[in-house]
Write a protein that binds this DNA or RNA. Structure first.
Lengths: 214, 214, 214, 214
DNA sequence: TATTAAACGAGACGGTACGTCGCGTCTTGGT
DNA sequence: ACCAAGACGCGACGTACCGTCTCGTTTAATA
């Protein structure tokens, strides 16, 4: 992926080639790439991403700094790739026929992964970085948010077709309405994001704020 | 206000004293405090908060670094105070009797202030800082989020008593549900936050996702 | 002294002030200056000036790199000052009335100081640096070569007035003719510079190459 | 020639073979060797030898770094060979019967070549390198200084046999006494080395410093 | 009114990390 | 088999800020 407005590629490291067979002897470049990302996550969990430095990652990984800068233009980009390399077995929606239950299951899984240690603090920090670095924000959207949104919309569309959602529900807003309150809890109030809290949010969103006739 | 877990006070600068009379000659301390915060905002708008340094603020403000460190423990704290010093004429809810309209008006105002230049990028950056600095997160909550939430809940409670809201609506969730989608747009997708978008969100939240009997 | 063509002063460190009384408490700046120069000489003798780095001097001296760069613009300048700080009790000519003997004594002393460990290798390296850095070359001349030349010329002039030198001897060439062969041995052939060698050179220079009538 | 204390040969590049016939098609190795040395001189004249890097030579010459390292162990060695490759049509003494005139002519030629652009600065830098790298110093002596000294001594010996030099003149010192003052001017005072200056030095050396009977 | 303690600007200081450069070695792929 | 190209670990470069710490100099409150 090429980041918009920037020739530097990351996301897929420039020097990596996809290895189609697991027994393919991996090239030097790919080895270093993996080692660096693994070290980034380790060190990040130990000392926090605020104190994480490219210098320290290089030292711990036994890599030269240039080897890191050759691949990623910034600490944020490195963090992004390192985190997303974990998430490649992505968060998929089940379809049991009960959309409310399916959403609940999927969101619980997402919350368990992204809002709890060991990766919660990392993910939080990544969104923090995105506020400064437009490249990171763009890449985060393209590679994580948009795919999730697409899956969510697809599942909701199926539900609407089955009459489980209001036909007037604005599907474009789905991601913001479903995820927004959770990100609010994660980023703004920074209170724990429990399953119970998720359930209450879902109930409220399904019911709506307006009074309903009995 | 004392930040939790830290003896250093900010929010109300330690050296400031409230001046009860406008003609009271302001003390040296308050002058410097104001000049520094003003410079912080100026410089932040010019070069962005990522590149903002206390060193540069001191130089531009004609202040010694010590004078800044005497007041604020970190760049984040300085940014927080600088921003909130603008907001003291706070965002209040009207009460026209029509809760949907009142929310709309108030949220439009908030969005105009916090999601658009010149202060949108600053506010975004402040939330970014909050992901790293727990003190900033706590102060942001105490001094901005909680007061807003309280006002929102108060207005909604009145509406519920008048039958304009579902009696079962979970008021504790109000802030997250109303604000979450907007912060999502501001922080995650980083798309423009228009009045039209706010209206669509509000409509969807009032209606709810579940199908309604005609 | 200001180096020609450069605003940066070294030789006399910018931040130093001469302390007129030995019991004057020395300022912070002068302390660091001395410590850094001392460390430079130590480390230079240990590992050689080729391998000497500003980084290593800073680390060993317990100083920040900036503290060094604030004073000296380059490794060569630092080396120059460090070396010349040793030489301030300079090489002076005796005047016993016998100019040949006086030259011999003074040159033996100079050779012992500058062509033998511990300072010979340092002095050699300094001249090496001077080939690359015009500032170092200029400062070396102004602060070391020219003063020595002046003393030499003064001593020779006295000798000429007493009839101990050929009245036609070109005094302007004195330094080059007396020192040149020694620097040649030091820098080019890099053979040991013994007292015996110095004596042979002096004898030859006094006698001249041309045949003499009996 | 093998450098003392080092198995790596330079001087005669390991991969070069003397081509005995001018129409022999030269091998690939020799082409690269020449191209690299030519580039070294070009680049050295453009940016100065201090800033010259093997990396840059390789890039400019369209050569791999390995190809350079295969031939020369250091930047100094490369510089030495590059410079001496120019000088193979060496500086030889005429013998007109007048030794003073012959020395004058030969030294003028040497000074024109080695103390003036384009090769003066390079030669100066080479001597600078020799202060750090003993190998370079040794090779410079063996391949340039010693041969020149031998020629000089031979010419002077002939002159002495003809009674043009003092029979007591110490021939072993000849090179140091004749060249030393010139190197002093080149390396230490870094003043221009004119023919007129050379002549004055020669006159003084022939005459000697001691007074002469009429 | 004179004294004095605090706040202040200025900036030196020991550090840490930055992003860049060049070293000398090693790997890859092309000719 | 040699080459160009360049990745790699390494180490130093020179810069920027960090947060702490003297410095003298105002400044305004007290004596």
């Amino acid at each position: 992926m090429t980041l918009p407005g920037n020739d530097v590629k990351y996301g897929t490291c420039r020097t990596d080639k996809v290895s189609f067979m697991s027994d393919t002897p991996r090239r030097r470049g790919a080895d270093r790439t993996e080692a660096i990302m693994r070290t980034t996550l380790e060190l990040g969990q130990e000392i926090g991403y605020a104190r994480l430095s490219i210098e320290a990652v290089a030292a711990r990984a036994g890599a030269g700094k240039h080897t890191i800068y050759r691949r990623w233009p910034s600490k944020g980009a490195l963090l992004l790739d390192s985190l997303l390399s974990l998430n490649e077995t992505s968060l998929d929606y089940p379809d049991t026929g009960d959309v409310a239950a399916d959403l609940r299951v999927q969101i619980h899984a997402a919350v368990d992964l992204l809002a709890a240690p060991p990766f919660g603090p990392l993910f939080q920090a990544l969104i923090g970085e995105a506020q400064y670095e437009p490249q990171v924000a763009a890449a985060l959207n393209e590679r994580f948010i948009v795919p999730q949104a697409d899956k969510t919309v697809a599942r909701l569309k199926a539900a609407r077709d089955q009459g489980q959602l209001s036909p007037r529900f604005d599907l474009e807003l789905a991601m913001a309405i479903l995820s927004g309150p959770l990100y609010f809890q994660l980023l703004i109030t920074q209170q724990p994001l429990t399953h119970e809290y998720v359930d209450r949010i879902l109930d409220a969103l399904f019911a709506g704020m307006a009074p309903r006739p009995q």
